[in-house]
């Protein structure tokens, strides 16, 4: 147990320099990008209706007239205290804009990610029982197709069919602006359905592939023969021993999968006008709201690093061999 605790502490300590590196990287980017760094930090400050006092305060706040190194220190300490800059287009601190939008994104990502992890892993494990069978090749072909279809295009096609054609689901937003059910839970679920389905369909092939490949690999290990010889039923061997071991590679590449989920979320939110962080990113690009773009980059990187950390820790719990590494 002590070993595990030490391992977790070490992983956390290793994550801190990574987060620093991300923040410094972001700072470097807007200093080497063509154009004046100040203009990136202050993008949108020309928008009518912004109090000149705010603009001055922000310039001071970021020490934009100070030498570079001092600016970096100011920037770093700001970010660490949760100050990601100011969005003049929205007239709000960036961190506030981001935090407002996170719940909607979670509502979209979590159910579909959980569903695709569970369903994909089970399908993948099942296919691994008979590699090369008819069912296996059919499902593999389908998953290659889904994997190759651009996420947002799939979303658009679903829109064409179910929203514009069959008129079964609303085409955009999170709730209906008017109508009897506007704002009710049913209304929200209806809005959630198509974007969630899109994400599910694009994510599920990755989990099918990963689970299938690792279960096939594990089913060839010697210990699987031991358990078969012990008189366990095929399914018991598969689900009690093979799957547990095969989950380890799934967890290991979770970092990469997470990137996939996020990319999907940004695009799907854009297609369906889902008011989450992805849609906000799209709007920020559209308006060239640089403070917001940078803020989202730093925020999502920190989230990403934290989740990777959590995944590593979960891994250590799942695999007794890891702890003292």
């Amino acid at each position: 147990m002590n070993g595990l605790r030490r391992y977790i502490a070490r992983r956390i300590l290793e994550a801190i320099p990574l987060i620093f590196a991300i923040i410094v990287f972001n700072f470097v980017i807007f200093h080497i990008a063509p154009g004046d760094p100040t203009s990136y930090m202050m993008a949108g400050s020309g928008v009518a209706g912004i109090d000149p006092v705010v603009i001055e305060a922000m310039k001071k706040r970021w020490g934009l007239d100070k030498p570079l190194l001092e600016q970096l220190v100011v920037y770093l300490s700001g970010v660490i205290r949760g100050d990601l800059g100011y969005s003049f287009f929205r007239n709000k601190p960036v961190s506030e804009v981001i935090l407002e939008r996170v719940p909607a994104t979670l509502l979209l990502i979590l159910p579909s990610a959980c569903a695709s992890i569970v369903v994909g892993t089970l399908i993948g494990a099942y296919l691994a029982k008979r590699p090369g069978s008819k069912l296996d090749s059919t499902v593999s072909t389908f998953s290659s197709i889904l994997y190759s279809v651009p996420v947002f295009w799939l979303g658009l096609i679903l829109l064409i069919i179910f929203a514009f054609g069959l008129k079964l689901f609303p085409s955009s937003g999170m709730v209906s602006p008017i109508g009897e059910y506007a704002g009710s839970v049913t209304d929200m679920l209806q809005h959630l359905f198509l974007p969630s389905l899109t994400l599910f369909l694009t994510d599920v092939p990755i989990f099918i592939r990963t689970a299938r490949a690792s279960v096939i690999e594990i089913m060839r290990e010697d210990f699987i023969t031991t358990f078969k010889a012990m008189g366990l039923k095929e399914n018991a061997v598969l689900y009690k021993h093979a799957l547990r071991n095969a989950l380890l590679p799934t967890v290991t590449i979770a970092g990469m999968l997470l990137g996939f989920l996020l990319t999907g979320a940004v695009l799907v939110e854009t297609v369906f006008g889902w008011p989450g962080l992805g849609r906000t990113t799209y709007e920020a690009i559209y308006m060239r709201d640089y403070p917001l773009i940078m803020g989202i980059f730093v925020f999502s990187s920190i989230v990403f690093i934290s989740i990777t950390l959590v995944v590593d820790i979960v891994y250590a719990f799942l695999d007794p061999r890891v702890k003292y590494r």
Partner: peptide
């Protein structure tokens, strides 16, 4: 070496 389940 490999005849036992490594995670149990």
């Amino acid at each position: 070496m490999n005849a036992l389940d490594p995670v149990k």
